Each structure stands twice: as C-alpha cells, then as structure tokens.
Simulated scan of single mutants.
Amino acid sequence: MTSETEIRAKSKPATPVTPAAKTSSPQPQMHSHSPAGPTAFPAPQQIGFFLLPDFALMSYASAIEPLRAANLLAGRPVYNILNYSVSGGHIASSSGTAVPTTPLAQAPTNLHSLFVCAGGHPSQWQAPGMLPALRKLARWGVRMGGISSGAYVLAAAGLLGQRQFTIHWEHAPALIEAFPDLEPQRARFVMDGDRITCGGGVAPLDMMHAMIAENLGSDFATRVSDWFLHTQVGTSTGSQRASLAERYNLHHPGLLRVLEKMETTIEDPKSREEMARFARLSTRQLDRLFDQHLGKSFLETYRQVRLDHAHRLLTQSALTISEIAFATGFSNSSHFSRSYKATYGITPSMARGD
C-alpha cells in the first residue's frame, strides 16, 4: 500500500552543518541545587516540533509547557523550543489556534530532538518534501519523536523499523493496516534510544517528565511536574484508555473475557458458540449476561465493535471500502455498507465525503 507521497520541497534546503559534531544522547549534568533551584545546568537542548495542519493542540501544549516551566524554574534557558512545518508560516491546530513556524528544511543539525505533532486523518499526511526532510534529520542523529498520531508520519518515513513505539489508540488500526510490519505498543509513551513517542492527550506530560529527568535529574523533573499539579506521573507502560470494566461499567470476568476477545478478533469474528466455550459459559448463560449487563445481544455488541473499528479506518486510512469490509469481518462490501448505514445513518462513501 502506498504510504507516502514524496514531492520536492518548496523551500530550498539549508546548507547542512557537518553532523559529526552532534551528540546524539543527553547526559545528566546537573551538579548541585538549592531551594531556589539548580545552580549548574548543561547547555540548552534544541527541541523542535514539526507541526502538521490540524495538529492536536492539547498534545502540543502538554509537550511544550513542561519545557517552558523547566526554563522558568531553572532561571535560564535549558530548552530552546523551535516550531517547524513543511513550508513555514502559521499552522492551524485542531481548535484553529495558529502557531508560527519555520520551514523544516531550515532545521539545524544541532537539534537534539524533533517531535512530529499530528492530529486526525493520517492517510492524508502527504506534504511536499516532508518525509525526505525527516529522514535527513534522522541521519544527522536527531532524536525523532511522535506525539498523538505523529508516529504514523515516522512510519511513513521508514523511521520506526526495528523500534518500539506507540501511537494514540484511535490511530493504531490505520497504522497497522498501512504498515503491517509494525506493531505499536499499548503504552502512554515509549522511549527507545533515538526514538521517543507518546499517545497524545496528556501523555506528553508523562513523556516530558521522563525526558527532563533523563537530562536534568528526577528531582528537577518532579519540580516541573508539581508546577502543573501533575502529581500522578504516569509510567511509560501505563494504559492509554480506561479498562474494559470501566468503559462498559461491568465486572463479570467471563463477560469481560468475551468483550476483550471481540476487540482482538475483528477481522475474523468468532461464533457465539466459540465465544461461550472460550469464556467457559453455556450459550444460554452468555446470552443472559449480554442482556443483563449491556442491554444488547451478543451479535449486536460484536457488530458494533467491528463497525466502530471500521469507522476509524474509514476516516483515518487510505484503505478502500472493500478492504475495510474485509478487515472488519464482513463477507462483502454490500453487507458492510448496509450495516454501516443502519448504525451511522450514512453510507461509508458519505463518511469519507465521496
């Protein structure tokens, strides 16, 4: 499947500086601190944010604000925040707030890290010159990051092979379909050497806590988190979503096992009898549990799980409607279209704006 469109960049690339002088990994160098704050810091790190149109504003703010607070608490710049886009100019966020940017081609080789910040519709992220520019920075030793759906862009640039990474749970299905060799982790954030990714939302707060601790020590990172009342710092392995028990407001172990199995067998749906055996229940018990706890039948619930998955693929992937029907366990596109319209009131083609 075509995952990228590479066109020559509109802006002429800046003359590269010899990358040999760049250090690729941060080293904690804070020597001492007083109640007023640390008294010795390493040289400021250049942290870049590559913004795509309609980028997730909350995720972006959750990433840059800890860096700003670190500068404030340190009493001097310890992080320089730089904003980039493909061609420069103001880039509108998901809420319409515009951020001024510099063309990515002008990014210096002494960038420590570059985070790709993106929102919805990953299959449409095909800006001129974007992927070659990202690959060039990676070759120079820049630490490459993805925020919210930014990992999809890194995958399209071929920068996530043999790496552990994560992506916002809503965009995981589109990434897996587009790049079947890659498997995102179910984690809030993942730091794997010179790749660092998070699921978006408020997860960047946790990721930046870890990144600041890596550079300036855990005590200073805790002071930054306290500044934002971020007293419950999440771990890298923390979940991105509420548990099934919380989402469905139920606690029956057998029913939870079936619901979890539904979410992992979307492409190859299991029969009611197979699911009952899997949960060590009779089919009559299974039917009673669905009716009692969810107010829906087994088949209605399973169909909704598959249609929700199909909806995400329709809005976020370049798969054809027939391919989406197959990927969500429908026998053909006609059956899929009828089921989709009965649930959402519009056809799959209308959902895509065709």
Rank of each mutant, 00 (worst) to 15 (best):
I266K: 13
A245K: 05
M191E: 07
P173L: 07
I266W: 01
E273A: 14
G193K: 02
A21T: 10
N71P: 12
L289Q: 15
S317D: 12
G200H: 01
H252T: 08
F330N: 00
K341H: 13
Q27C: 14
R68C: 05
D206R: 00
R186T: 11
L307N: 05
G353I: 04
T197Y: 04
L294A: 13
E170Y: 10
K296W: 03
G145C: 05
A157R: 04
V99W: 06
S148Q: 13
N249A: 14
V224G: 08
R188L: 00
I81F: 10
G200P: 13
L134W: 08
I266Q: 05
F165M: 00
E4C: 14
A74L: 12
L159D: 03
F41P: 07
S95Q: 15
G201Y: 01
S113E: 10
G353V: 03
R247S: 13
Y60N: 00
G217Y: 00
H121Y: 07
S123P: 12
S62Y: 04
R139W: 07
Y60F: 13
S322Y: 06
G201M: 03
T265R: 11
T328F: 02
A69P: 07
I321L: 12
I81V: 04
P44Q: 09
E323N: 03
G141D: 00
S95Y: 09
E6T: 08
G234Q: 08
Q164K: 08
E4N: 12
R257K: 10
T347F: 00
L67I: 05
L73S: 05
R247H: 10
P103S: 08
K296N: 15
P53D: 13
G75E: 06
E323L: 03
F330L: 06
I266G: 08
T347L: 08
L216P: 03
P66G: 01
A342Q: 07
H171R: 10
F41M: 09
F326W: 06
E183I: 09
L294M: 03
K270Q: 11
Q304F: 09
A172C: 09
T265D: 04
R68S: 15
Q29R: 06
T2E: 10
G89S: 11
L244P: 12
W125A: 10
P19G: 15
F189K: 00
P184N: 08
F179H: 12
P122W: 07
G329P: 07
G48S: 02
S85Q: 08
S243H: 05
S94Y: 07
A310Q: 05
L131P: 08
Y248V: 14
R338D: 04
Q304C: 12
A70V: 14
L299F: 13
A178R: 15
Y248Q: 15
P108A: 04
H112I: 02
H31D: 11
S317M: 03
S339V: 11
S243Y: 00
P204C: 04
S149N: 14
S349N: 14
P122E: 09
T265N: 09
M350Q: 14
D226S: 11
R272M: 05
T235K: 00
P44E: 06
G96N: 05
I167L: 11
Y79M: 01
T315N: 14
G353C: 08
P38L: 11
R135F: 09
P13F: 02
L182P: 01
Y340Q: 09
I196T: 00
G120M: 06
